[in-house]
Every structure is written in C-alpha cells, then in structure tokens.
Design a protein around this nucleic acid. Structure first.
Length: 760
DNA sequence: AAGTATGGTAAGGGTAATTGGAAGCT
DNA sequence: CAGCTTCCAATTACCCTTACCATACT
C-alpha cells in the first residue's frame, strides 16, 4: 500500500459509505467503519470501538489482517507489482436498537484496477497473511503470531479441508480445468502460478502446508493401504539398492516417497516384535533417562529423541520405544495407578470444565499433570478417543455437544445401568416417524430488534426465520415437490434469504443438507438493498450445500410447531425463534442451519445453549442418505429410489449401532447426540453470550411470520454436487458420505457405510 | 553477486485406527 | 474345555513440522 505516505500519522485514503481507510505511523492501514451513515468519521477518536477498526498490514500488499472477527476483508493483489488492490469488506456492526437498518451492514469496494480475477475469493473472505507466503521456519511463525496473525497447524480440520476443496473447485471452474491433478502434476511451475496462493484463501496455514496437503491429497500413490509381504521384500531390496532415495523407491513400488520412508522406519532388521522382555524394558528405561538426563521415577513425556533411544535399545524401533514408554513403562516406573471408571467420568468432567470450543484446544499436558492413573498426555488423549466413540455420531456433533452428550451418557449409566441390555438395535428406527424427507417451508419473518444488549463485537445480524411443515411425512413416498422448501422474503423489510432450499437428509442422523440453487452463489446471501449486501465469507463443504442439523425429528412432524433456522457464517448469524413464546417454542422443535465455518471464531451455537442427548431407543433417528445417493436424488427422481435408500440407511444405522455396542462395552448404549438448541430466555442468552467475545443473540419475532403461498420451484434447484476429498475418491469411488467423507478411508465403519448406502 | 520467493526433500515426532493375544466369561 | 467376549498392548498407515537444499527470479 505504498500509495499511502508512510510518514504521515493518519492519512485518509478513501472513504466509501462512511468507511475510512487510514494509515498509522507503522504503516498499517486502519479501516474505520461507523455504525451508520450519520456517524462522523474521526480517526483520532480513541473511543471508536475496536470492532470497527480493521487493520490492513502494510508489510506487503498481501498482508491483510482482520483485527476483528466481525469484519472480513479480502485484498486481492492484482499483480505482483501493482499497488492497487481491491478490498471487499463486509462489516456487521451491532444491531441497531430498534431495527436492522441498512447502516448495520456495509460493503466497501475499493476497486483501483479493473482486472479483477475470476477466481477472487468469495467477496469478503479473509485472506490471512499466513496463507500467502511460503513460511517454513519457526521464526516466521513466531513473528507472524506476535503480530496477531492466526497460524494454524496440526491436523487439518474438516472445515479447513472443506475450504481448501472449495477453493480448488473454484480455481478449476474459473479456468475451465477439469482435474486438479493436471495443475498439480502436469503443469509447469509457471503455468500453475498462483495456484497454491489462490487455493490457500481463507486458511490460516502457510503456503507450504497447503502445498503439501494438496500434493498428498491428489497423489494416488498415497493411501495405497497395507503393505503386502511381497512389497516389504521388494522394499528391502530397493532400500539396499537406492538407500534413502525415497522418491525412486516409491516410484518403483507405486507408493509415495513418504510412504516408503515411513514403512522403512518400521522395519529394522534387528527389531523384535511382540511382548517386551524385562531386559528390553530395563534397557529402554535406562536409555530414556540417560538421554534426557532424568532419574528413574521421573515423568518424561517430551523431549525424547526416539531415534536415538531406539538406536541404543537396539532391538526395537523408535515407534516401539515411544509407544512402550508413553503408554506403559514411564507410568509403571513412576508408580502410576490403574485407570478406573471414575477416572473416565472424571476425564469427561474435567474436559467439560475446560470449556473449550474445540478439541484441539485441550492442553493434554496440563490435564494429565498430577493424575496418577494417566500414563502420559498422549495416552490420555487416546483414552479420550475411546471414550468419544461411545457416541456413535461423535464426528458429526460439535465438541461442546459431544461433551454434554458424554456427561449425560455417564449420568444415565449411573442411573440406569440396565440400559445397555437393550440390544434391540438402538439405531433401528422402530417408530421411524422421521423416516422420510422433511417437508418444510421456511419463512422469513421481519427482523426485530435485538435486545440492544449487544455485549460484544461479534454480534451480528439475526433474522428470524421460521420453518413450518407443509405436509406430514409419513412415508418416503412423499411427493418430491414438497422436499423443496421455499424461503420468501414476503414483506420482510430488509432481508431475503435464498429463494429456494432443498432439504435432504444426509448420512448423519438428524443432519440435512440444505441445498440451494447455485445461482444464489454461496450458501447464504442476504440482500437488504442494492447498496447493502451481505454475503457469506467462507465456503461450506460445497457452494451449494449447507448442513442442517435437526433435532428430534418427530417434532418436525408436527405442523404446528415452529422450527427455526440458524445460519451462521463469519459475518452472518441468523438465529430465529418462534413467534409466540420465545421461552418455550424452540425447545419443541428446531432446525439448525449451520454452515460450520469456524474461520472467524464464531461461537459454536452449541456453546450458547443447553444440549440434549437422545438415546437411540428414545429417539427416532432421521435416516441418513449417502451423498452419492443425493447426487442422483434430483427432484424428478422416483420415490422408489428414495425407498431403497431408506432401507439401506436404516440398515446402516442399526449396523453401526450394534457395532458400536460391541466396540464400546463400557458404554451402556451407543448414543446419538443431537445438536439441540433449546431456547433460553433472552436474558439467559445474553448472559451466556457475554462469556466470550463470540456472541449470538436471539432475536424474538413476536409479530409472526410471513406467509407465502409460493409453489416450490423445482427448476431452481440444481442437483447436488459434492466436493469430496480426493483421498476418498481413491478408495471410496462409489460413495461419498457427508459427515464422514473425510474420515480414514480404511476405516471399517466407512466401509460398512459404503456397502450399505452405495447407490450403485 | 546477493537476496528473496518458491518448490522440494529427508528426518523424525506424532496421531488415529486396526490387529491380535491374553484374560475373562458362559 | 470350547467358544465366545472383552480388554488393551502392539502395530502401522498416514499426518505434520522442521530444517535444509535447489533453483529461478529480482
């Protein structure tokens, strides 16, 4: 941004719609966006709430920092040396006292160059400085982190992969390329210029991390699976012949370089297998203590060079040494006690107390500290995994919901220990009142004030939306037309939400896909006026899909019940409440639309509300659909197809549940947790909301909902197209399962599901 | 020629899920 | 004792970071 003079204290660059760009002494661009048009811009005003300041780092033109979660900015460098840039900003400020006005949403477009790239991000998606350079060193990371940049590392979350896949898809579409592998493996560096930078949009990971992830995803020599004895033999030969030239060895074996490298690590000729002898254990302990300068009895869980240890132990590989030490020997040596059922409950409670929104935020070291029956932080974490699997759909529910589910589960176990003896197949939808596509209409109510108690900058727009059923759903033979739900703005004063939705069950009980016509763009577009546009800031799993969680589907069958839709994106939160009685109606029935975008630190809705757990026996589960089926499940499809899919998915549920019971004997029953947002009073919500910066307020809508008699417009609903992790494509060619599509392709569960729901 | 950006590799710490042996139960 | 279930140590395919190197570009 060298267009701005660096010396000046504050320079107004441009003002659009009462938003001012200024630059401070450090060269950072500060963006001020007052709440409404009447506000005077005063960059010197220190009272200016921080949420209205947007810092565009001037370190380089690509470094844009969004200092507040409620403002999203994209700065698109149009060419290497071009100082011009486009800023598209969507700012959601506090909801006005009485109503949502145009002033609450502001879009800025500073367009200094006409050459807009086709594949510019979603209009207002965050571009993290982190994702736009090839940082590799710890210093890079520390430096950026210190400047307030988010730097994500560790395992990629589903959300991140979704964003990545969506970015890739957009890139491909924009360039008319069919297959990403063309770019990745065939194009020259020059030809694929900016590919990685482009697809890194919205991710807080350095380019090199994105690059590696993409290579792995699309490398069909990766994820080949278990090595056969023949392969092992050949690998040994190749190793002798080529040494550490993993690329050559990999090519000869048809495996990725890292795969053969990893496999070689596991097969030392001198390695024993099976049970450790006392002598080996003794040697391991000695070596570990020696190399870490610790005493026998000390707890050592980090800072061990396992390669060096293995070298000294002689008869075991580094992995074996590490596993033995962390999972047994250290604990044994330091006088650990046995893990009990109480410990298990304790663990759940302690994790719950941490009050973290994401599992990745758990500090296992801290949690394990001073806990004598915990063998190591790593061990505790794996223990947590086994506990987690007591919840059958643990992968599909938010972390806070999962915790509450587990707490409930264990409470129920205490109170009703006979529950586990119900072997009738908890997932079998016996009553199956919900075994069909839900027929709903979503209506948008006029937007009411919020309470005015907007406690944090995260307060975003809230638009009451009502979904009411247009028909009861006794069987799967329901007419296709009614599967499409229509949103109509009616007399809504300000906002219109997607002209059409298509609601479909997914592979996850209680979870639906909200499909929108792609012509509507990304999942949600709210338009208040030509000058005020609010769009979502990040991509969901696919541009045409929003995941919908529904609770207790039997409620949905009651036409009279109000159902709410909640959409949230980094810049939009829509939560609705029922018309008449805000304190009671939501708990009766509710539908949650959750685009599941975390990039802007939105509060998980589950944080804000009490959750419920439904034991399978008591809950009629919504039969899931495979996404593969969905893709065929156009509006014109016969009901026969639906029927057959139903049967299959019911099987899936029961199989999955029975399997779960077998696998988790400690669980009294495998449970499905449903994301259930009860309806606290406004006061309660505010209380809860004020805990964090992340705030979602409920907007009551006492005036009721707008009626629409619109017929469903099938033409506007496109077939589902799903972005699937290519890893999966390699192994689950026939099945793309929403909700679990990113799980390990070799998992048994996935295979089961694949078998059962495959539409081929 | 030096500095920088980008692409690439090896090493190794780690995770998540499966496997299989032993103990327990009927 | 057979035939299972259950438990959990061991194993392993895969993931990710870090450090470092190569090359093209500025």
């Amino acid at each position: 941004m060298s267009t701005v003079e660096e010396e000046s204290d504050t320079v107004t660059v441009e003002t659009v719609n009462s938003v001012t760009l200024t630059q401070d002494t450090e060269g950072n661009l500060i963006l001020h966006c007052p709440q409404n048009e009447t506000d005077e811009i005063d960059s010197e005003d220190s009272i200016e709430p921080p949420n209205k300041r947007l810092c565009l780092s001037s370190e380089d033109d690509q470094s844009i920092e969004d200092s507040t979660p409620c403002i999203s900015v994209v700065a698109v460098p149009l060419s290497e040396n071009d100082q011009s840039f486009e800023v598209t900003m969507t700012a959601t400020t506090e909801v006005a006292e009485d109503e949502i006005t145009e002033g609450t949403v502001t879009q800025i477009q500073i367009l200094q160059n006409e050459q807009l790239d086709d594949v510019s991000p979603l209009g207002n998606e965050e571009v993290s400085a982190v994702s736009q350079a090839w940082f590799t060193t710890k210093e890079d990371k520390d430096s950026l982190t210190n400047k307030g940049h988010k730097w994500k590392q560790g395992m990629w979350s589903k959300e991140e992969i979704d964003i990545l896949m969506s970015n890739i898809e957009r890139y491909l579409k924009a360039r008319g390329i069919k297959d990403a592998t063309e770019i990745i493996f065939e194009m020259s560096k020059d030809e694929r210029k900016d590919f990685y930078r482009t697809i890194a949009w919205g991710l807080n990971r350095p380019l090199f991390a994105v690059y590696r992830r993409v290579l792995r995803m699309y490398d069909d020599r990766n994820h080949v699976g278990k090595y056969t004895p023949e392969e092992i033999e050949k690998l040994k030969e190749l190793r002798i012949k080529h040494g550490n030239d993993w690329a050559t060895i990999g090519a000869a074996l048809g495996r990725s370089a890292s795969s053969v490298k990893d496999r070689c690590r596991l097969m030392k000729d001198t390695c024993n297998t099976g049970k450790w002898t006392e002598e080996e254990e003794k040697r391991l302990a000695e070596v570990v203590h020696e190399l870490t300068s610790t005493e026998p009895g000390d707890i050592v869980t980090q800072g061990v060079s396992w390669a060096a240890v293995a070298e000294r132990v002689g008869t075991r590989s580094e992995k074996q040494c590490r596993s033995k030490w962390l999972n047994y020997l250290n604990w044994k040596q330091s006088g650990g006690t046995e893990w009990t059922k109480e410990d298990e409950i304790n663990l759940i409670l302690r994790i719950a107390e941490l009050d973290v929104a994401d599992e990745n935020d758990i500090n296992w070291d801290l949690l394990a500290e001073g806990w004598s029956s915990v063998r190591s932080p790593q061990w505790l974490r794996s223990k947590w995994w086994t506990i987690k699997r007591q919840i059958a759909n643990h992968k599909d529910v938010s972390f806070p919901v999962l915790i509450k589910g587990l707490k409930q589960l264990h409470e129920n176990q205490k109170n009703n220990p006979t529950l586990s003896e119900n072997k009738s197949g908890p997932g079998v939808p016996n009553t199956n009142t919900n075994s069909s596509v839900q027929h709903v209409q979503i209506r948008v109510a006029r937007l009411e004030e919020n309470t005015g108690i907007s406690p944090s900058p995260m307060t975003a727009l809230q638009i009451p939306v009502q979904i009411t059923h247009v028909s009861s759903t006794e069987s799967s033979a329901a007419s296709v037309d009614s599967e499409t739900i229509t949103l109509n703005s009616g007399t809504l004063q300000a906002f219109e939400i997607l002209p059409s939705f298509h609601l479909q069950p997914t592979g996850t009980p209680g979870t639906y896909l909200l499909q929108t016509s792609s012509s509507q763009g990304l999942p949600l577009t709210l338009t208040a006026s030509p000058t005020v546009t609010l769009t979502t800031t990040a991509a969901p799993a696919s541009p045409e899909q929003i995941i919908v969680h529904a609770l207790s589907p039997e409620h949905l069958l009651n036409t009279n019940d109000n159902v709410t839709v909640q959409c949230h994106t980094p810049s939009v939160i829509i939560r609705t409440v029922a018309t008449e009685d805000i304190t009671s109606s939501i708990s009766q029935a509710e539908l949650t639309v959750d685009t599941d975008i975390r990039s802007a630190d939105l509060a998980d809705p589950a944080d804000t509300f009490p959750d419920e757990i439904h034991h399978p026996k008591l809950t009629s589960e919504t039969p899931p659909f495979s996404d593969a089926c969905d893709s065929k499940f156009s509006d014109q499809n016969s009901t026969e197809l639906i029927d057959s899919m139903m049967v299959r998915t019911e099987e899936e549920i029961s199989v999955s549940d029975l399997k779960q019971e077998e696998d988790s004997p400690s669980a009294l029953a495998s449970a499905y947790v449903t994301e259930d947002l009860e309806s606290p009073t406004i006061e309660e919500q505010v209380d809860q909301s004020t805990i964090d910066d992340e705030t979602i307020l409920i907007v009551p809508s006492p005036r009721g909902f707008i009626r629409t008699a619109d017929d469903i417009d099938n033409e506007s609903v496109l077939p589902l197209t799903t972005l699937t992790d290519p890893i999966l494509h390699h192994h689950q060619e026939e099945s793309h399962i929403i909700g679990s599509s990113l799980d390990s392709p070799i998992s048994e569960d996935s295979k089961d599901v694949e078998d059962l729901v495959s539409c081929h």
